[in-house]
Design a protein around this nucleic acid. Structure first.
Lengths: 236, 236
DNA sequence: GTTCACACGTGAGGC
DNA sequence: TGCCTCACGTGTGAA
């Protein structure tokens, strides 16, 4: 985009700028400065300080469109070039990216609330003694969804020789903690506290566990090995 | 936007259109047709069929930008006017709308997966005898979230005189089924089967229940009255 | 006849 | 130098 916009240059060439609400048509080219031929209604050689209306209108229209383009650029992040065409191109890419992301988020939401509802059903059916589970229930509690659990970070910190602080981050949420509990069950551990921080993309778990064994370093290795196997496909 | 683009009119005025890859600069204005003065390098009165390069370049640039605008318009739904400025304005509004929607979806997802994880924790802690709940757990299972449940559609169909098919649609998901189970508990009903269909905006529930009472029509009225009270604010 | 939106030709300035 | 982008003035057709 032109930075000077060619406005400031002709600013000295005219005298009266008090028409309209100012800011409009700051550049009125005199007859000597322009090589184009302009026919004024009053004189042939135009040195009149009042430009015709259509020039004002056209300039307003151009300014309006330019302002709209700036506004478009302001709502689009990651703009590479200030080009008019580049602004529109980046806006198109950004819109398509937003649309895809919205579609992904919607599918994720539907999946989440579906599994959520299923969990509610099972929980209610098992908790409430008035309700009873039906033998003809067409749902399989074992594997309604097969999510891909991916452990991104893992830290196992020994506190003393009986307690451990385990912090790890995973991208998918369902069954991740169940797997963890299976690990702790197999290692004969007890959960003291469990904390979860949910960010947009991942879940950060922090667990404080206790063991009966005395050899702390061996338990730590066992925990790391067991959690590292969460990424592997399930074997029911 | 101009529909004719002023291209087809001057098509008959020139002879050679075999430069570049065609499609470019179909309108070359001859000296008689245009009122503007054009100085060619060869002659004063320009009837030469070959326009200078900068004209071709400028026209290509304008066409490129116009094409970009069309592309922008194509990815934006609900375009009201074909104006250049209106296209950009609608694009800006659409982008802002998408951004807000994405933020809402993300917060909804985080809330969903947070409550999901909490449910998993409680479920696991209660189920697994190896793990034990901690007395210092800082979480309140009673009311972690207060969603607004809204029942959109409700149908209660009597099948025989002991069974009923209940189908209803609600917008928010958490605790909706729990409320339903409370209703069934208060009415001394049994869930035979439960089915949920999750769409983007709502959840459609279909339940098959059984009652011990003999007066079917009275039970139907009780069910309808109880479900209709789900919309009311909770009274714990 | 007036307004509006557009495409065009053209000169200026930046790389 | 040439190429690219821009703003400007102007003519034109449609509402």
């Amino acid at each position: 985009m032109d930075l000077t916009e060619g406005e400031g240059e002709y600013n000295n060439y005219w005298e009266t700028r008090t028409f309209l609400e100012a800011e409009v048509l700051r550049s009125w080219i005199t007859g000597e400065a322009s090589s184009q031929c302009y026919f004024s209604s009053s004189s042939i050689v135009a040195t009149s300080p009042t430009p015709p209306k259509y020039l004002v209108t056209e300039k307003n229209r151009r300014e309006k469109l330019k302002e709209k383009l700036y506004a478009l650029r302001s709502v689009v992040p990651n703009i590479t070039k200030m080009d008019k065409a580049s602004i529109i191109k980046d806006a198109i890419n950004y819109i398509q990216q937003l649309q895809e992301q919205e579609k992904m988020l919607q599918s994720e939401i539907s999946e989440l609330e579906m599994s959520h509802e299923l969990a509610d059903i099972f929980y209610d059916m098992e908790q409430d003694d008035v309700l009873q589970t039906s033998p003809s229930r067409p749902l399989d509690p074992g594997s309604p969804f097969i999510p891909s659990i991916e452990v991104l970070e893992l830290k196992v910190l020994a506190v003393g020789n009986k307690n451990f602080v385990i912090s790890f981050t995973c991208n998918k949420k369902r069954d991740a903690l169940i797997k963890m509990c299976e690990v702790f069950e197999s290692l004969n551990l007890k959960i003291i506290t469990a904390n979860i921080i949910s960010s947009s993309e991942s879940l950060s778990h922090t667990l404080f566990i206790e063991t009966d064994e005395l050899d702390g370093s061996r338990v730590k290795e066992q925990i790391e090995a067991a959690i590292a196997e969460i990424d592997a496909p399930r074997n029911p």
